[in-house]
Computed example of a mutant assay.
Amino acid sequence: MRYTLGFRLPRENLDWVRHDLTDAGWRTRLVVRHIALMIPVSLALALLPGPWWVRLMVALLAFMASTLTVAVSADDLRRSRLHRHGLEVPPGQRR
């Protein structure tokens, strides 16, 4: 959960972080983790008072906007996490 929220993991998890951010499917894992985090947040937003359609639209807007933002900024998020853990960005992936 801490990793999903952007916190740094202990040094003993460095190999796992490297695998997570450099192996095939890293982008999918990043988006799926974000979706898993946003489902309870969206459900909480849907429970706010108001007409049902407003609550539904607020929850959908938060879910879709944040997921699109993560998908579009995946490369930058990956670079930031690699840097935070003291790892190098793979060659050909630097800006």
Rank of each mutant, 00 (worst) to 15 (best):
M1C: 13
R2N: 12
R2I: 13
R2Y: 12
Y3P: 08
T4D: 10
L5S: 13
L5Q: 12
L5M: 14
G6P: 06
R8H: 06
R8G: 06
L9N: 07
L9C: 09
L9H: 04
L9S: 14
P10C: 04
E12H: 13
E12M: 10
E12T: 12
E12N: 14
N13R: 15
D15T: 13
D15I: 03
R18G: 05
R18W: 11
R18D: 12
R18N: 11
H19S: 15
D20E: 10
L21V: 07
L21M: 15
L21G: 05
T22W: 06
T22H: 04
D23E: 15
A24Y: 11
A24D: 14
G25T: 08
W26Q: 05
W26Y: 10
R27C: 02
T28F: 14
L30Q: 06
L30C: 07
V31F: 07
V31K: 05
V32E: 07
V32A: 10
V32I: 13
R33P: 06
R33V: 06
R33H: 12
H34E: 15
H34C: 14
I35L: 15
A36T: 11
L37R: 13
M38W: 07
V41D: 05
V41L: 15
S42L: 05
L45H: 02
A46L: 06
A46N: 09
L47F: 02
L48T: 11
L48G: 10
P49W: 00
G50P: 01
G50Q: 00
G50L: 00
P51E: 08
P51W: 05
W52F: 13
W53I: 01
W53F: 03
V54A: 15
V54F: 14
R55P: 00
R55Q: 10
R55H: 02
V58I: 10
V58W: 02
V58H: 01
A59K: 01
L60I: 06
L60P: 03
A62D: 01
F63M: 06
M64R: 05
A65E: 03
A65P: 04
A65C: 09
S66V: 12
T67R: 00
T67E: 01
T67I: 02
T69G: 14
T69Q: 11
A71R: 02
A71N: 01
V72A: 05
A74C: 03
D76H: 04
L77K: 03
R78M: 04
R79D: 04
R79V: 00
S80Q: 12
R81A: 14
L82A: 01
H83K: 15
R84V: 04
H85C: 07
L87H: 02
L87R: 02
E88R: 12
E88Y: 02
V89C: 03
P91E: 08
P91Y: 02
P91C: 03
G92W: 03
Q93Y: 08
R94M: 08
R94N: 09
R94W: 08
